[in-house]
Design a protein around this nucleic acid. Structure first.
Lengths: 372, 372
DNA sequence: ATTAGCACTCGAAGAAACAGAGTGCCAACA
DNA sequence: TGTTGGCACTCTGTTTCTTCGAGTGCTAAT
């Protein structure tokens, strides 16, 4: 059975007030907010109803009401008003995402922005699809050293300086380079067999094991490239939240977040839509440690068929509307920077966001850098 | 005036007990510890003396005693006994530092170990000296793209994929490569003037701005190379400490630590000795935020004339002896891995060709040496 | 259906009482 | 002179009790 319009208004009022104050809210406070013309007594009746339907609860008999996860869910799905960013916020985000930064730093920077703007810990994550090698280059330095340069299908470049305990001549390096370009490009990591390596070794007449070194680096690079990259920023912000004044509680959650790996549990896979926003409220989270926290995540296009997510974690008493708006805008900015793709309207958020999202100025030269 | 041996014993006992329990310690507790054969009354007299001399203080008239920074200083300098690591600890550290990891990951891993073993937040830092470029290579890919590969004086290799909005031919790339190798190698970042760049541009007959792109990357790389690299791990451990049960206090310190840049304030420059250990107690720290925390840092040889420090931050009530032993051992391990200059295998090679850093398994912990 | 009024509940905050750990000092003692 | 036992005193943390007030649910009137 649907809620009456007035009940919805009241529910929204309770939630917004609670988000603001972190205190149980009473009938009088709602009446005072004014927008609905009825007395506290009437509101009490409505509140009682909302409690019995599971949208609100009372910490104890004679206290005000507090939203339940179900209440928040209703709020997020139907009640919440879209919020616009202030011009300053828009400017700040655009400004801070506009520097000429390598992708991984851009990701962690975006996290930092999200965290600072929302006052919650933020996380960013990008899943890299398996890559292949597009091109090998071996740069001969001297008899005992050379550099391997790999160009990946993602256009990332990886390199490594190799020093040898034995001497090698330039023609050998040349030969190996040709060989690898012929046989080891365009294939995935698990397609590289030890048989192939041995064959190459014989073909190059390499009895020094150099072939193996190069192959090892290729395999390692490909393996690494699959890795998902994750950043967590601003954990300490949790301590600002009244619900985490208990250091143990704070510690538990912070440890969970910090311990690598967990971030990968986020439902990136399920999220297919561009700029999709997802809100996970309290018990909706699978992880036990998050059962009374909320997570808001937005997806972005990380370029090269990669998708990433950026999100924040906080208490269920979160300013969903504000956070959603900011995340959505930051994600749009990231997509622009990394993907260069077109931004799609984030579901449930108004178009102004998108229009503003286009403020991101394009860059002339697309570049990636890596270090060895 | 020197302290009598008995006073020293008592002071040490107070500090050790306080480190263990975090509670003010009374005369009876010390008497019960036994090693000195006198009654609580006697000890009380001594304690009163130690208070008036500034080594101890009383939170209030009828409470036990608590060490002052001066007391800790005395303890660290003269009283503290060297502590040996257990075999498990040695094994764990050796094991965890022995993986074939790239230097920066090794650093952050070492921090993680330090943090987990001491239960305090840990930081690692390595200062890179200014580098020069040893060699340029430009790899021509196609008319619109090429790769810049820089070999630095530190033997690090940096690269970047450049995409051009215009066409360029292979000979131009070739020419630029020769040019840069001739004029831009062996010099430091601030020796690269716009005059030089323009000269190179003219010499190469480059009217597409490619020279500028390459030069910009060179400058950027050199600038970056000077950067000190810093990692902070395990901030959340602070919340374990009773002195940080106040979330505000914890938050202040954590924010200070997390905010980049501050780590560089550590007195790395002053520390010249190998494996030098330094303890900064409470007000000895320059930063206001650290005035009632202690920092213990150990230096390590990061190879290539780089020096690094690894340390932990905690309340003044720290187990100095245990932490010092662990840090010292970890620092020694890092030196072994990273130091020995260029013989350290580059990332990811566990190959027979590369001489593995020999195990630092044998106990080679330096004595703790401290400074006032 | 809404509202005013009222008795009731329950937690937060404050006050008072208490227990106990620890001290300082004094007088006795080796 | 240095050490010790004894004792009165001080101070905090805890517990218990009281009070206060916000907020409720219910009922009767509109």
């Amino acid at each position: 059975m649907e809620l009456t319009p007035r009940k919805k208004k009241i529910l929204a009022a309770v939630i917004e007030e609670y988000i603001r104050t972190a205190e149980p809210v009473g009938s009088k406070a709602i009446a005072a907010k004014g927008n609905l013309g009825c007395s506290p007594a009437t509101i009490r009746n409505e509140l009682a109803e909302l409690v019995s339907r599971g949208y609100l609860e009372q910490p104890h008999t004679s206290a005000g009401r507090v939203p339940t996860p179900l209440g928040y869910r209703m709020y997020v799905n139907e009640l919440m008003e879209e919020q616009n960013l202030t011009d300053e916020e828009v400017a700040e985000i655009a400004e801070r995402l506009s520097g000429p930064l390598p992708p991984d730093q851009l990701m962690s920077d975006a996290g930092r922005i999200a965290s600072q703007l929302t006052n919650y810990p933020a996380l960013t994550l990008a899943a890299r699809p398996a890559a292949t090698i597009k091109r090998f280059d071996l740069i001969y330095l001297d008899a005992n050293s050379f550099i391997i340069v790999l160009l990946l299908s993602t256009d990332a470049v990886k390199n490594k300086l190799v020093r040898l305990p034995v001497s090698v001549d330039q023609t050998m390096i040349q030969k190996l380079s040709t060989l690898f370009n012929a046989h080891f490009t365009g294939i995935s990591e698990n397609a590289i067999t030890s048989g192939m390596i041995h064959a190459a070794e014989r073909a190059a007449e390499d009895n020094l094991g150099i072939t193996a070194v190069i192959a090892a680096f290729a395999i390692e690079t490909l393996t690494d490239s699959e890795q998902t990259q994750a950043y967590l920023v601003g954990e300490t912000q949790l301590l600002n939240q009244p619900e985490f004044r208990d250091p143990d509680k704070a510690h538990r959650l912070m440890r969970y977040l910090t311990e690598g790996g967990h971030l990968a549990d986020l439902p990136l896979e399920e999220m297919r839509g561009d700029n999709e926003l997802r809100v996970l409220i309290g018990p909706e989270n699978v992880a036990e440690e998050l059962k009374d926290s909320s997570v808001i995540i937005a997806t972005y296009d990380a370029g090269d068929n990669m998708r990433g997510i950026i999100g924040v974690v906080g208490p269920t008493r979160m300013d969903y509307s504000r956070v959603a708006a900011k995340l959505s805008y930051i994600a749009a900015g990231l997509s622009k920077r990394l993907g260069g793709g077109s931004s799609m309207p984030p579901p449930g958020l108004d178009n102004k966001l998108i229009i503003k999202g286009e403020d991101f100025d394009e860059r002339e030269i697309q570049e990636e850098e890596n270090e060895g």
